[in-house]
Design a protein around this nucleic acid. Structure first.
Lengths: 363, 363
DNA sequence: GTGAAAGCGCTAACAC
DNA sequence: GTGTTAGCGCTTTCAC
């Protein structure tokens, strides 16, 4: 099978064995270098020859081998994308943006989910190293330092979201959680809410900490001292939201509004409330975070804080690309700002009793 | 920069330049062949040497270059995964399963979304060809024949869902839509529904056609002749569901139950109903298809037809792997059966009026 | 059982 | 402007 000549009954078109740059060169009567140059659109090639080469390429339907290209050029044209769990709609939306931009620029992406498991993360990083990624976007909202070493040691450009070690070759996307969260708290306070609960994300996540801190700060700004009982830990999943709302419900003095660390949590909260027979927003207001697509059609439509996936994807890609393609300029940490802002829909309203109170007043 | 010797101020550990099998060989005092064999766990290597090699590898934290391996061995250990839109939660759940299994078996996956755009699909296929994937799972629920040619011509093993050309090297996952859909229709009929509407998927999708056909057949089995007006075309998105329900609502004789081609559609339908002030399931029953995770917490929890993502992922991977690793045995089309079954939750009940009717009867 | 040597398909010097 | 040649980092005959 190795070196049998093309069987006589095969037309040259489907002689699919050994289709390489050399074959093209022979058929187009040029050298392999010319073929390579043509494919890579080097401007110095004689248009006549180029045309001949392209014709042969099209006729044979030749596709260059990326592995060989990568091996010799040292450019894999591959970026790693590390996420925590593909199952949270936030991430697919982010992936979509990242992939779009990457492909547009001739890059491929290698996606890995860590599922919050450090062991898995270590595997993911190893695999990325083996495939020689040129950079990796770490969108897990938190990473163990030792694992990071693997990448840093090899000088792989990195971009983090939120949390980022301050080193050359590392960019970080600074999300302005406070802006959106303050808007949310103010929105609630303006409506008359004082007892505003917060369902946080897993406390080991930096982003979760930042969101919590933004909540606390915003509450103080509104002159409210948050009761520790109002803060309960979720885990950014549907089930976590259900459980967290359960905890809140078990308390004597029920909050009149619940701010959630992400939309999945909020959807869980909505569900638990539905199960309990409490109406949103009549009995209690709920606010999410992320503004995933589905938040528009929850029942009721979710008031939430938007954080643009596209903005993040774009910034992450740009950070990586600039590190790779012009490593000399701008060495050192680069920061990108990501904004957040409140989207008011229908899961927020006056605290229970306010309407009656107002009505009485006006009568 | 090319051939400068290790600077004296650098310890060998961080002499990160040119870390290859050769370096390991030199430091372990063996030949590169032995290093290669050790890494590949060839059993004939002398344990003593192997130990020495592993020690050096660990000390230098050496990671083999997959590109080079792939180039010389002809095995990229890469599978392509073609999906229609990553934004539909069905797919991330499928990706998760596929990735898990693939990584377990030493494969990496290249994910591409076509977004239902033939042009994009053509790009995706091209990129996969360039990266020399060893097989591709086409989970788009429909593909244009000409594009398929690209893959088939190069004898890339393929696995389709639902629709599959009958050729060697091509496997197909046959989903038994009829089973689940019949259960759904019977469930509805048993509850007393006769006017059961169906929101289909995009009509150009094979899977959508199959689901529609299963609905029609099941209706007839229950002795109901479906009115053409009951069948409206959606597009498997939230918005499509909203729009489809809008169409249904505009009709004189409103259906008492709506069966949807997928869960996203059903969630859209639920939302439109909520907007209209109709209660589910009191005024109208709704059934979805897929059983995505979020279906458990919709309001009300969605009765839906389950199609196991894990089962699909596993079958797809197995099909591909068996084609790649033992191409001689079982040449030809291989079929895998995927089952579907009804999960009854709370979006279905008696048609409006039945309860009162029953109550009257019993009084 | 181990090493030397020949490439895998391509790019990038370097001559011409 | 085009061709020749030397590898990229690895696996895999093939001798020993």
């Amino acid at each position: 099978m190795t070196n049998d000549p093309t069987p006589p009954n095969q037309t040259p078109e489907d002689a699919s064995e050994r289709m390489d740059i050399r074959t093209i060169a022979r058929l187009a009567n040029v050298s392999i270098a010319t073929v390579s140059r043509t494919i890579n659109r080097v401007s110095t090639v004689n248009p006549k020859m180029a045309k001949r080469v392209w014709e042969v390429i099209e006729k044979l339907d030749f596709v260059p081998n990326t592995q060989a290209r990568a091996l010799v050029s040292g450019r894999s044209k591959l970026f790693g994308l590390l996420i925590s769990e593909i199952t949270n709609p936030f991430f697919p939306e982010l992936i979509q943006g990242f992939e779009e931009i990457a492909v547009e620029h001739g890059y491929e992406i290698l996606i890995s989910s860590t599922n919050h498991d450090p062991k898995r993360m270590s595997h993911c990083i190893r695999r990325m190293l083996e495939r020689k990624v040129e950079g990796v976007a770490i969108m897990t909202f938190g990473i163990e330092e030792p694992l990071l070493e693997q990448l840093a040691k090899r000088k792989v450009p990195l971009v983090f979201i939120d949390v980022g070690p301050d080193r050359p070759g590392i960019s970080v996307l600074k999300v302005d959680y406070h802006h959106g969260i303050r808007q949310a708290v103010q929105h609630l306070a303006a409506l008359g809410h004082r007892r505003i609960a917060f369902v946080s994300g897993p406390k080991l996540l930096h982003s979760a900490q930042s969101r919590l801190a933004a909540y606390t700060k915003s509450m103080h700004e509104c002159g409210i001292v948050p009761d520790p009982g109002w803060i309960v830990e979720g885990d950014h999943t549907l089930e976590g939201g259900v459980a967290a709302m359960g905890q809140l419900l078990a308390q004597d003095d029920l909050a009149t509004a619940v701010l959630c660390s992400n939309d999945m949590t909020a959807i869980g909260v909505l569900h638990k409330l539905y199960r309990t027979g409490l109406r949103v927003p009549d009995d209690i207001s709920v606010i999410g975070f992320d503004d995933i697509h589905i938040a528009e059609v929850t029942i009721p439509p979710l008031t939430t804080i938007q954080m643009s996936r596209f903005e993040i994807a774009k910034a992450a890609f740009d950070a990586l690309q600039s590190q790779v393609e012009s490593p000399n300029q701008l060495i050192g940490k680069r920061e990108f700002n990501i904004s957040t802002s409140l989207i008011v829909r229908e899961s927020t309203s006056y605290p229970r009793g306010t309407m009656e109170h107002l009505r009485k007043k006006s009568t």
